[in-house]
Design a binder for these strands. Structure first.
Lengths: 150, 150
DNA sequence: TTACCTGCAAAGGGTTTGCAGAGTC
DNA sequence: GACTCTGCAAACCCTTTGCAGGTAA
């Protein structure tokens, strides 16, 4: 599935969600969805605000926060809280789940995917009686290059 | 190791750390360490502040934040950011490794331990050629009580 | 037309900072 | 005695809220 068909698919999902919930289909909401799905990495509300402002699309922070809640609720984005007090978001539709490993010496970040994390998720969900929506997993250590120079 | 010997051991660790870093051994810092190690669960800075105030130990929030940084730096506590914008802490010396699952509705935090995370760690370390020192893993979802009230 | 939604600005709440006085080394 | 640390309060920053005008249904 290419980028433009992803964009139109998520628009449909969002549209259907808004109808189902009895909300209104405002142009701002779809403009924000577009902006979110044109991001290629993690982003925060302020970045969205700046990006949209630079494109001369006038939208308020209040509306951005409001819309992020809707996108979260219908599962089109994931929210992270990586240490700092800034909420970080990430598009969630059709993107391969991945986790990160960080080198604490040089700051390098690599990605990997291990299916066993989903098995742990299922076990924990059952054991703790939670309905789990997402997870965040980081490994910290020293990468190959940094081990050699030690 | 019982509680009081843990208390005196962490005091030594902290003392040695302060010396090594050329900081000063103020009574406030040790009083805060004591308070931290008398907590039995996660806590935030405001809770420490209230507890110490109730014991008529006068300490400012600024000093609490300052000291938390030192305790983090020498590994005597761990800092978490469970969704909300409140930093939560946890004592780290001699306590069993565990991971967390957070209810995104009510903020409740539960703990569990699944050994498979260590297997993933070994696999990822080999595959990515990292020497891994630690990890952070959080599951997010809805707890049993919140599912019922939906 | 009727709510709901938006933009704006002010308020909230956790954390950080600036400064004067206190206390460690 | 020098310089860091503390306490206090104000400043900061991200997020939420209140309100008046706008707009989808």
């Amino acid at each position: 599935m290419n980028n433009s068909s992803i964009q139109s698919t998520v628009k449909e999902i969002f549209s259907e969600y808004i109808e189902r919930k009895g909300h209104r289909k405002t142009p701002e909401r779809f403009a924000i969805l577009d902006e979110v799905y044109s991001q290629n990495s993690h982003f925060d509300v302020e970045q969205l605000y700046i990006h949209m402002k630079n494109k001369n699309y006038r939208v308020s922070r209040a509306t951005l926060y409001n819309t992020m809640d809707l996108l979260l609720d219908c599962g089109l984005i994931i929210k992270h809280q990586f240490g700092k007090n800034i909420a970080q978001f990430e598009k969630a539709y059709l993107f391969k789940q991945h986790d990160h490993i960080i080198c604490t010496t040089c700051g390098r970040v690599d990605e990997y995917c291990d299916p066993r994390i989903h098995e742990i998720e299922k076990t924990v969900a059952g054991m703790m009686k939670y309905s789990i929506s997402h997870h965040s997993l980081y490994f910290y250590g020293t990468c190959e290059a940094c081990q050699k120079t030690k």
